[in-house]
Amino acid sequence: MNYAKLMKNFIVFAVLIVSYSSFSQNRVAKQSDLKVVYEFNYKKFVELDNVRTANTILINKKDEALFTFDKMIRLDSLQQFRPLESNEAMLYRSPYFFLIKRKNKEISHYETIGNDLLKFSDTVGLNWNLVNEEKLINTYRCKKATLNFLGRNWIAWYTTKIPVSAGPYKFFGLPGLIINIQDTENIFEFTAVEIKKGTYGIDSNIKNYFVSEGGEKFYDIEKKEFFKIKTKYYEMSLNERLKYMNREKKEGIYSFDIKSTTGEKVRTNRKSKARNFIEHYKDEK
């Protein structure tokens, strides 16, 4: 009788151990997602030297990767559960509102121009040039690689210690994670400041990452048309932009007239200062 009871306990115990180890094996297998926080330093205007900073996030999963601004990730965690309040939309303003989704070599670029949600698809093949140089960045020994992409020359530092072929924005395809990448004119720079392994989700409803009026959806347009609209939009004066953003309101077309009490006038009709964009798009005729 004793033996039977012992045997029964042992079987139960064995089953528990086996199920635990197989269960824990499953747990281990899931942890290959990577979340990288890249500090993004950029010069917004062509003629001004001051450098601005924003935090961007790369989420790299087995099948796909997502790259966007930290504030937009926060917008998503909010909008997944409830609609945005009008003041929160301003609090979560990102310097740019774009999101890059990558699946192998297929890139989907989502961006808002004014109040419009636009999207275009692209296939990229990056021809990296590996250089035999090494540098220590944030405790990682990195190797150098150069590239001409998006109309600019880039210098990247990657580490094979993190064998993930990913990086910020649309950069990928090196034998390790890109820790730092900068263009040769020193306008844009991404530096990894935090890397975590774990399980991270990507919201399939991309709209949740953006600020939008209810009912709007992303318009799929040609890459060429997207850049034409983007260039045109950022050239517009404050007044023109206001009109453009409110063009669908049935009240009609708005304009700004700002004068302060001291008599100072804000030049709302002046064309905007020239900006720097990551993609130096040239119209291929």
Binding site: Q31, V37, N138, T139, V193, E194, I195, K196, K197
Partner: peptide, 9 residues
């Protein structure tokens, strides 16, 4: 959730 890098932001 292994943290591979945490530097000063």
């Amino acid at each position: 959730d292994e943290v591979l890098l945490k530097s000063q932001k």
